[in-house]
Write a protein that binds this DNA or RNA. Structure first.
Lengths: 205, 205
DNA sequence: GTCTATAGCCAGATAGAC
DNA sequence: GTCTATCTGGCTATAGAC
């Protein structure tokens, strides 16, 4: 890989700072309530400068989602490197990581309804590529976990995949945090338990 | 109760039509993407006339939520009238009803992040009153189901309550509908199963 | 590439006649 | 209470100087 010039490194660092701000603001207020002015103010540059780096608000959101998917893949790699772990344990670890990210207020979430945003995401190659990679690698583990009897084999793998994905925007952690009576770790364990064992709980197993 | 005059009845009917439109638009596009112009056009009146009935966009959303909670209470009453049913069966029936409403595209959902909306809801007495009623009546069934061993007794009842509430805005049904390969009834059963028994499924019971 | 200043647009809310 | 026409503010995006 070619070495980056100093100018390019500066550029890269600045863009990282932008995407990190976007990530936090998306986690905080969501796409519709996040304004480009806020992002610029948070990064500490002028709004017009922002638009030199990213052509639209949608592109900002897409960049934040790409960053999230890259981190997700890193966690997947990390779990894949545990030879002693079962597929189910890997899926559980990934889901726990996502929930921890969420209770820490660092999980960006996009409205699935906004059509201009959807259009831009569906045209974003890096995003689609990463989404496909994540889906495929989780898909393998899901099938393995079903074969091992750890996941209900009558569920289509896509149902399992979406159910795991949905933990990233589960409103339950936010509600429990708002109540203010429980630790983040406790909240994560409860939500993870209801995801894996349902309301009935793991008692009978 | 005093009989309503003819004028009052007309008013009531019109407001019902407004709230029904809001309900569908909220289910369709969500609060942020729903415009007051659309609501007016959908009802077939001028925007200014809308504002004679409801003082703000937030008030429109609140009215839709009040309607939803009233219907929820009606379903709760209906379940309470089944003497042979267990608390768990009643909770399950209510959750199934909510999921059916969602796949039918009739479940209004509000962004939990919007603060002006939250403020207006928290100041809306009828809404709060109904929310409290629903929570208390479900809370009773939850405690009973825990005592009967149907729900994990180590979960705080509020965790169970929020988990059930969250089925109303679960993104999984919408994703599965978008895939277009499954019937609405099948989708409801899968999501209900993952809610009650988790990914592991009911096999071991 | 950074800034200040502003264009252009859209949506929530209102004025005022009827 | 209904309408048409308009106000107002905030937001995305851009022009143009440096």
């Amino acid at each position: 890989m070619a070495r980056l010039s100093f100018r390019e490194q500066v550029l890269r660092v600045r863009e990282d700072a932008i995407v990190e701000s976007v990530n936090r603001l998306l986690a905080d207020k969501g796409f519709d309530l996040m304004t480009v002015d806020e992002v610029a103010a948070d990064v500490g540059i002028a709004k017009a400068s922002l638009y030199k780096h990213f052509p639209s608000k949608e592109a900002l959101a897409a960049a934040a989602m790409v960053r999230l998917l890259q981190r997700t893949l890193a966690v997947i790699d990390q779990q894949a490197a545990r030879p002693e772990a079962t597929a189910m344990q890997r899926l559980e670890a990934l889901t726990r990581w996502a929930l921890e990210l969420q209770v820490a207020g660092e999980m960006p979430t996009l409205p699935s309804q906004n059509s201009s945003l959807r259009a831009e995401l569906m045209a974003h190659r890096a995003y689609l590529e990463l989404l496909l990679q994540v889906s495929e690698r989780l898909g393998e583990w899901i099938v393995q976990a079903q074969a091992a009897g750890d996941i209900d084999a009558t569920l289509p793998p896509e149902v399992v995949l979406y159910t795991i994905f949905a933990r990233a925007c589960d409103p339950v952690p936010a509600f429990l945090k708002a109540a203010g009576q429980h630790s983040n770790a406790q909240i994560v364990e409860w939500v993870l338990s209801t995801c894996l064992h349902g309301l009935h709980g793991p008692a009978a197993r």
